[in-house]
Amino acid sequence: MSTALSLAVLTPDTIDAALALRVRPDQEHLVAPVATSLAEAYVHGEAAWPRLILDGDRPVGFVMAFFDLRFHPDRPGDRPRSGLWRLLIDAGHQRGGYGRFAVEQVCAEIRRRGGTRATVTYHPGPDGPVGFYTRLGFRPTGELSGTQVVAEVEL
């Protein structure tokens, strides 16, 4: 991993590189492809924050955050949530610190927008990313989102 890590807005010049990112075949059931994420970002508008993870000018992954910092008076007890919606590190670039960098940048953006917690959902099985998120401070809330574990970290 170089010291020139950054997150970049996707552009017409970078879309093909983003769409070419792939996890290992044994991880495909854990994360949706970039194309699915971009379709979700399109329909969710400003709530979605898709970014390409770059090492210098080389795409190494994709991250998408979601932001909901508004108070919902019609839902007492419901807390606004922001967090990590999708994280995909290309198979050839895994275990290089890129995922940690991306999660840290998402958390920094949540803080910049006034948030105090970050939320993530993940596949709960032994092949899932529970260890990764635990090392970053995320703790299960006891909730499920479909079949996925919901975890949070205080910022």
Results as ranks from 00 to 15, higher is better:
residue 134 T to V: 03
residue 114 G to K: 07
residue 126 P to W: 12
residue 125 G to V: 13
residue 123 H to C: 11
residue 132 F to R: 04
residue 132 F to T: 07
residue 147 T to M: 10
residue 138 F to S: 06
residue 137 G to M: 14
residue 112 R to E: 05
residue 118 A to W: 04
residue 130 V to I: 01
residue 140 P to I: 06
residue 136 L to C: 12
residue 149 V to M: 01
residue 120 V to C: 03
residue 140 P to N: 08
residue 129 P to K: 13
residue 121 T to H: 11
residue 133 Y to W: 04
residue 144 L to Y: 09
residue 132 F to S: 08
residue 130 V to K: 10
residue 122 Y to R: 13
residue 111 R to Q: 14
residue 124 P to R: 04
residue 137 G to K: 07
residue 115 G to I: 08
residue 142 G to M: 08
residue 134 T to D: 13
residue 138 F to Q: 10
residue 124 P to S: 11
residue 112 R to T: 00
residue 134 T to A: 15
residue 138 F to M: 02
residue 120 V to P: 05
residue 135 R to M: 05
residue 121 T to P: 06
residue 139 R to M: 12
residue 149 V to Y: 00
residue 130 V to D: 13
residue 133 Y to P: 06
residue 127 D to M: 08
residue 122 Y to V: 08
residue 110 I to G: 07
residue 110 I to R: 06
residue 133 Y to S: 03
residue 149 V to W: 01
residue 132 F to N: 10
residue 111 R to Y: 01
residue 147 T to E: 15
residue 145 S to V: 06
residue 125 G to S: 15
residue 120 V to G: 01
residue 146 G to I: 02
residue 143 E to T: 08
residue 133 Y to I: 03
residue 146 G to R: 02
residue 130 V to W: 04
residue 117 R to Q: 02
residue 132 F to Q: 12
residue 116 T to H: 09
residue 146 G to H: 00
residue 141 T to N: 10
residue 148 Q to V: 02
residue 120 V to Q: 01
residue 129 P to D: 12
residue 110 I to W: 06
residue 136 L to H: 02
residue 119 T to F: 02
residue 140 P to A: 03
residue 114 G to M: 10
residue 111 R to S: 11
residue 144 L to W: 01
residue 120 V to F: 05
residue 130 V to H: 11
residue 134 T to M: 02
residue 123 H to D: 15
residue 116 T to V: 07
residue 138 F to K: 05
residue 122 Y to I: 10
residue 110 I to Q: 05
residue 112 R to Q: 11
residue 134 T to I: 05
residue 144 L to I: 09
